[in-house]
Simulated scan of single mutants.
Amino acid sequence: MEDPQWDAADFSGMAERLYRYSELLASGASREQVRRLAETSRLYRLSRSIYGRSPAQRLHLPAIFRRLPDTAVVGFYTGAQLHGFGDVRNRDVHVIVPAGENVPHIRGVVAHEAVVPVGDPVFLGGVPCAPAARCAVDLARLLRRMDAMPLLDLCLRVGACQPEDLRSEVARHERLRGVCQARQLIPLADPRAECRQESQLRLVLIDGGLPPPEPQIWVSDRDGVPLYRLDLGYRLRRVGVEYDGISHLDRTRLRHDRARMNWLAANGWQMRHFTDLDLYHRPAHIITTLTPLLRP
């Protein structure tokens, strides 16, 4: 027979708390009572053996962490998302644990053994998370160059960390897989990049042997009033480089672009536009198009 006193327990204050199944049983609840509370939405099963008062997604990570070792911290893709620069989506929850730590198998959780200690974690979303620079460097080591560059740019753009933080962190990863790539890309990271394709186009130019372009160049009229902003460019050569995505197919945008292009051409700017076909399937075409315009 159910204990009505426990079933009517005051759950105020539990909204931000999580309970293991064993803790609920230890408090005096029976298995049947826990089941009924879950059926009537007074408790929610958030993860295996973890319950809480709210089904909110933000409780998902804390629920998982109740099942992980105390040494675990969020990192990699999940850490980048919590820090605000999760440019590469990944549905799994990625955590970092010390080498040799025993981690239970949890569906959807990927545990990375840390060769390099994480250092002091920061608390985001109710869970301990590796510092932003650590998440960025770990991903810069493992992702493709074309994916790593936008992530590093975005990390700086949102202010998750500073360039010196990235330089200091990558120095700690000596001899780890992919560290050479991370060391090459970190000096190129630029917070002025405004989209993924812009970052990738900039990398194509640099990898193709061209000088690093300046992101987000403002072009002014004769009175010094800024009129137009270019994705990338070489100010001294008056060469502009832009990525045209699907938004440029809009009729209103097309009219604006035509007026803009005519003004830039009349004022000595040589503009070159590229699409996803160029960026992802024929990057050599981009280099051969721009090289003659940038020769000394």
Score class of each variant (00 low, 15 high):
R172K: 13
L142E: 10
P226G: 07
D92L: 14
N262Q: 14
H256K: 14
A80K: 00
P226K: 12
I50Q: 01
G100D: 13
P131R: 14
P226D: 07
R192I: 02
H273Q: 14
A114K: 05
L293A: 12
Y243R: 03
L61K: 11
D87C: 13
G13S: 02
V118P: 08
T288V: 14
A284M: 12
D120C: 00
S27T: 12
V118M: 03
P4D: 10
S54Q: 13
A259R: 14
L264C: 04
L151E: 09
I96D: 06
D231F: 01
P191C: 04
L24D: 04
L236W: 03
T78A: 07
P62E: 01
V225Y: 10
C161P: 08
L61W: 08
V239Y: 06
P211D: 12
T291F: 09
L232C: 06
L37M: 15
A38K: 10
L25D: 01
R222C: 09
L61Q: 03
E242Q: 12
D190Q: 15
F65E: 03
R177H: 06
R89Q: 12
Q5M: 15
E174F: 10
I286H: 02
S41V: 00
L277K: 13
G75N: 10
A259H: 15
R255Y: 01
D120V: 12
D3Y: 07
G178I: 07
N102F: 11
R31V: 04
R222Y: 08
R258I: 15
E242F: 03
Y77I: 06
L154I: 07
E101Y: 10
Q270R: 15
E23N: 00
D276Q: 15
L230Q: 08
L139N: 11
L139G: 10
A111N: 10
G84V: 13
R251Q: 01
V115A: 14
A72R: 08
P55H: 05
C155D: 01
R196G: 00
M261N: 13
Y77W: 06
D231P: 04
R229N: 01
A266P: 02
L185R: 11
R222A: 15
E194I: 08
D147W: 02
I217C: 00
Y51A: 01
A171I: 01
F11W: 13
W218P: 00
A132N: 09
A193V: 11
V158Y: 12
G178S: 04
V225A: 10
W263Q: 05
V158D: 01
A132D: 01
S27A: 15
G108N: 13
R229G: 05
R253E: 12
I206H: 02
R36K: 11
A266W: 02
V97A: 06
R202T: 09
S27E: 12
I206A: 02
I286S: 05
V74P: 09
Y234H: 03
R167W: 05
